[in-house]
């Protein structure tokens, strides 16, 4: 393995880092939702996919639909609008359905969100087919950039910077602000927090909106990189759940570190032993379950 040229390793590490950024954003959203709602949100992948489709629709379909062919919702507008739409739909889902399961076992929330994911994916398949749609990055982010050891598409560098900024901002929000203290307290003992005067039901709805909004942001960022298909989220979610099992659902920053770390490990495996690159995450998951069932950053209870 020592005859592999360094630039090839660095190139795979970079690709791994980009994947890791998506893992990190998605698993942070899952961790937030699990903390406050006690629900493992299987709709997360569908919500990610929805945002990517909204981005694509905004650019290619919205104008013709509305009868103004020249009307386009560009990438930057989508970066704001799509997560907001996904969050709003998610908050409706929470108020109408998830809330009714709050006092039941995890399993019911899991089944419901899994069902909603299937319905959503089915609807998009019906509407847009399974063949992937492409999406060009915005003009100012097109073309390659030299990062020393390789030429990297400008847009991918942007994804790394943007998603790291999003993750760090989320951690800052949770660990350093008053709102974050409410969210952490609500994760620990929501009933008592409500007895202190906080409107916990509304806070939970907003937290769900925030969690799926993160998935939406990731979906918009993914649109120019991945094939936009109804199944893009479901495929990614398999790995995200492995990430969450390894990291433990208890910690927001743990989710970020685990997501990035596993992206990098995957990238390195592609160079060192390519045959194992698709299973390495699941091997690590099995080891984590054996050695630390609560996850690397989880709390034993």
């Amino acid at each position: 393995m020592f005859d592999i040229p360094l630039p090839a390793v660095l190139a795979q590490v970079t690709i791994g880092l980009i994947n890791g950024c998506f893992y990190a954003m998605l698993s942070m959203g899952l961790a937030i939702i699990f903390g406050l709602l006690n629900i493992i949100n299987f709709t997360h992948g569908a919500q990610f996919m929805m945002a990517a489709f909204i981005t694509w629709i905004g650019l290619n379909q919205l104008g013709p639909w509305l009868g103004f062919p020249e009307l386009q919702l560009g990438f930057w507008a989508s970066l704001v609008v799509a997560p907001l739409i996904v969050a709003a739909v998610g908050m409706g889902l929470e108020r109408l359905l998830l809330r009714r399961l709050a006092h039941l076992d995890h399993l019911y929330g899991l089944l419901l969100t899994f069902g909603v994911a299937l319905v959503t994916e089915g609807a998009f398949r019906h509407g847009f087919g399974v063949s992937g749609q492409g999406y060009d990055p915005p003009e100012m982010l097109q073309g390659p950039i030299d990062i020393g050891f390789m030429m990297l598409p400008r847009y991918r560098l942007f994804v790394v910077v943007a998603s790291l900024a999003i993750c760090l901002a989320t951690i800052w929000l949770f660990e350093r602000t008053r709102l974050g203290a409410y969210l952490r307290a609500g994760t620990e003992n929501p009933r008592l927090l409500q007895a202190f005067g906080i409107n916990v039901p509304v806070m939970i709805t907003l937290a769900y909106g925030f969690g799926v909004g993160l998935a939406g942001l990731a979906g918009v960022l993914a649109a120019p990189i991945m094939q936009i298909t109804p199944l893009m989220g479901g495929n990614l979610l398999n790995i995200i759940f492995a990430v969450v099992v390894i990291g433990g659902l208890g910690s927001i920053s743990g989710a970020m570190v685990t997501g990035l770390g596993l992206g990098l490990i995957e990238g390195i495996t592609k160079v060192v032993y390519p045959e194992a690159s698709t299973v390495v995450v699941f091997v690590i998951m099995a080891l984590a379950l054996l050695l630390r069932p609560a996850g690397l950053f989880g709390r034993e209870t």
Partner: peptide, 12 residues
Amino acid sequence: PPHRIARLGVGY
């Protein structure tokens, strides 16, 4: 609901 009661000036 509890949060409205607390807002009337109850510390618990």
